[in-house]
Design a protein around this nucleic acid. Structure first.
Lengths: 217, 217
DNA sequence: CCTAGCCAAGCAAGCGCTTGGGAGGCCGCC
DNA sequence: GGCGGCCTCCCAAGCGCTTGCTTGGCTAGG
């Protein structure tokens, strides 16, 4: 939760400062309810009136708690990305070799992804919208850092002989990250547990990218 | 935004070709143009006015060729799914063992997916919308047949000892199908060729699911 | 003269968001 | 204690705009 993200180019009347302590419970309820709707119907496909109705108030009352509809989406997505990035950084700092770091990334971030499945779905479905909105420019920065971590570890693993030498790191990164982020949305649909998906994923990944000579894992 | 007429890029003075081949040429243009817009901004995120402007006509004129906006999306998606299903069926009828069938599916359908990348993107981004519209109910049927083919082949491979015996076929199917369908949308973003992606994919897949005892491939 | 194709104009519904004000709780001050 | 002022939270109404879609009429080719 980075409060500096509240900054906004628009110089409209600032949001009510409120008490520095915990914000109203109603506000948190709206965020939770809205994120579920965003996940089900997409960000653009969800109306402020729907969010308000689900929260038991009228649409105009939403704007007492939030500056705009985008501010609600911001609240959901920023917290999610911050947490994922924290997972990645901690995996890098505590892991040993490249394979170990990647396994830590998968294992720690998978639960974060599962917990924020609404934010993940939003990110995937409405990326084409968010990526063009200046307000959500920080997403590009965050995703670039994630990409950098993957690529660094894949390169490191190649040089250490843990991964196949013919691996295209950029291509492999795209495959692996999306493979990792995708299945976290089926939870309710497929009836698989998070750990179930993670184990199947890790087996699929490592037995594919680990070089036979290394014989790791 | 500006309803005033813009210069039309393509000359309308094209030869009055006998449009005996089904519908008019303009209609096909609209479908092609619309599918690109749908891929870029999503189905719901694209307006009829945008499609019309890109086609060089006014929005009302669209309705001379199509009953509704959904009819345009229908035209794009139905053709795509038909072609993919044909690929799957032919792979099943001409392939030998399960691994061979799956490789044929990946290799033949990948080019179909790449050629219809707009339809694929539409299917992924706006699935939550299409799945609730009765008009697009046939999608569920088609996807169910695709799922059945995957599961049948995975089961067959398990029994023949080609795939790991501990494979969860349902879970593996979800992983593999999404892994296969995902990367076909990066073409423009990553700069990878279709064959490049397919080869990386096949290596990642088979070296992960082929049982060591079989030693195939 | 007929019809396919298009334009110009606009309708009803829905969108995000604004406005003005009212109910109720908390505050300090007499 | 009583009371006016203030603040939080919400409602009722509606504004300006965009949406998918409709209508009526003009034009050109067969």
């Amino acid at each position: 939760m980075d409060p500096s993200r509240k900054s906004q180019p628009d110089s409209r009347a600032a949001a009510p400062r409120a008490n520095g302590a915990g914000r109203s419970r109603r506000r948190a309820d709206v965020i939770r309810i809205a994120s579920e709707l965003f996940a089900q119907k997409g960000f653009r496909g969800t109306t402020v009136r729907e969010i308000a109705e689900a929260a038991g108030i009228l649409s105009g009352s939403i704007y007492h708690h939030f500056d705009s509809k985008e501010a609600i989406g911001d609240e959901v997505l920023a917290g999610f990305l911050d947490e994922v990035l924290a997972d990645y950084r901690s995996a890098v700092s505590t892991g040993s070799d490249a394979a170990d770091v990647l396994e830590r990334i998968v294992r720690t971030s998978s639960h974060t992804l599962a917990r924020h499945h609404a934010a993940l779905t939003m990110l995937q479905n409405d990326w084409s919208y968010f990526s063009t909105q200046p307000r959500f420019a920080y997403m590009r920065t965050d995703l670039r850092e994630i990409e950098q971590i993957w690529i660094t570890q894949l390169e490191r693993g190649k040089e250490a002989g843990v991964f196949r030498p013919d691996l295209d790191v950029k291509l492999t990164y795209r495959l692996l990250r999306d493979i990792l982020w995708l299945p976290m949305n089926w939870r309710q649909a497929g009836g698989f547990s998070t750990d179930q998906v993670v184990d199947a994923l890790l087996r699929l990944l490592f037995d594919g990218i680990t070089s036979p000579a290394a014989g790791a894992r």
